[in-house]
Design a protein around this nucleic acid. Structure first.
Lengths: 217, 217
DNA sequence: GTATTGGTGGATACACCGTACGGTAGCGGG
DNA sequence: CCCGCTACCGTACGGTGTATCCACCAATAC
């Protein structure tokens, strides 16, 4: 098997899934492939180009959901697929919104969402569309990042409350006990039981509703 | 002047503003301070702790906007202050949503937004509040990241259309000319004239309106 | 006054990173 | 047969975060 961009990207994704983006290095990828580090530069000009490659592979999976019947179903499907992809490849969320996504598959999902939104009732001209796409993408990016971050700290501290109190506790609980952050304290203590996917979906529909009915600016 | 966490954080912020987060290293900070690299470890345990320090300094500036009369004005002020801070310190957007923000000033602005939102009409119980905070923060994070990213590519390619076509063009215009991404093409070509702050504000009010009036899930 | 101790600032060292560069081996053409 | 070219490869460089050790210097004990 003669090495290829696809193979390189695939093993890079595997390593990033396992050890995070920080734990990813060209040397490790090359070692995994049984090759000298410099071989990779025959297929990729930069590490950042390799990253773009990896990102577009993930977008390919997102693009697979294809087009649904209604514009709203399409948007929902893409959003959920993006979230699912980010949960499968947590490094993806580190890169979401942080660099232009110009790979062919990224453009494909961009096209699909834009086309869907342009069929929404309150989206009349291209300015409306620009804003709608911006708002939707901003929400998806922010939500997914937040969820992945929470998942990471949950994993690093242990999920049960005792371990949580023990690790974040010394600092955070002391902070919350100062009484200066009562609302945050309530959120931390009482608000942990909500289902993540449900919350995502709820907020997504809220935002979609907001976008698709005009209001005065 | 005997060196302190504040001084270290301040010069680190200066360097990050000038050269980005990638161009920031403990050695450069130390050199800037006229000190050996290892001295910094007397004040900071990690590079990531230093990063947390820097982040909280920025949050301090955001928290300065203080509380306004109405909940809505408060939320708007915080959101715009966050955006302004990120535009002043672009590295801030790289870190937004990517790690827990637990510094005292970060908690303060979290408290302020949560308290404000809890006074919104459609936010009745703590679950509503959790969702509202999540949606708002997700939007802010996503929007700011996106705007900073766009600004970076605009700066790197030059802002006029000719330079843009010349740098992104060879690839992107070829992509768009395939005709596979008609909606994206329209957005890229016709949609560049929108004012960023206006768009941010428009989408922000849209989302706020969506949050603060209940709907069926 | 001298010896000892403790702590503070600095230099060196290590493992690792992305990547530039020089060499070498194989092969087609004159 | 020999030359030149191309494709591959290892080594090397400048950088990173950080652990460890070392030199100095002040203050205390005798």
């Amino acid at each position: 098997m003669p090495l290829s961009r696809e193979k390189i990207a695939a093993t890079a994704i595997g390593l990033a899934d396992a050890h995070g983006l920080d734990g990813l290095s060209l040397r490790k990828i090359a070692r995994e492939l049984g090759v000298g580090p410099m071989r990779l530069y025959d297929y990729v000009v930069n590490k950042s180009e390799l990253l773009d490659l990896m990102v577009d592979v993930v977008y390919a999976r997102i693009a697979e959901v294809g087009r649904r019947s209604g514009w709203r179903d399409t948007v929902l499907a893409i959003a959920h697929a993006t979230r699912a992809a980010a949960l499968d490849h947590e490094w993806f969320s580190d890169v979401l919104g942080g660099r232009p996504h110009l790979g062919p598959h990224a453009l494909a999902v961009g096209e699909a969402t834009a086309a869907a939104l342009s069929a929404a009732p309150a989206v009349r001209d291209i300015d409306d569309l620009q804003r709608a796409v911006g708002a939707l993408n901003a929400f998806i990016v922010g939500s997914v990042r937040r969820e992945v971050t929470e998942r990471r700290i949950a994993r690093s501290t242990g999920t049960d409350e005792a371990a949580f109190q023990a690790s974040l506790g010394p600092y955070l609980t002391r902070m919350l006990k100062t009484g200066r952050y009562p609302t945050v304290a309530r959120l931390v203590i009482d608000g942990a039981h909500l289902n993540a996917e449900e919350t995502f979906n709820h907020n997504l529909t809220t935002i979609l509703d907001g976008i698709t009915q005009q209001r005065s600016t």
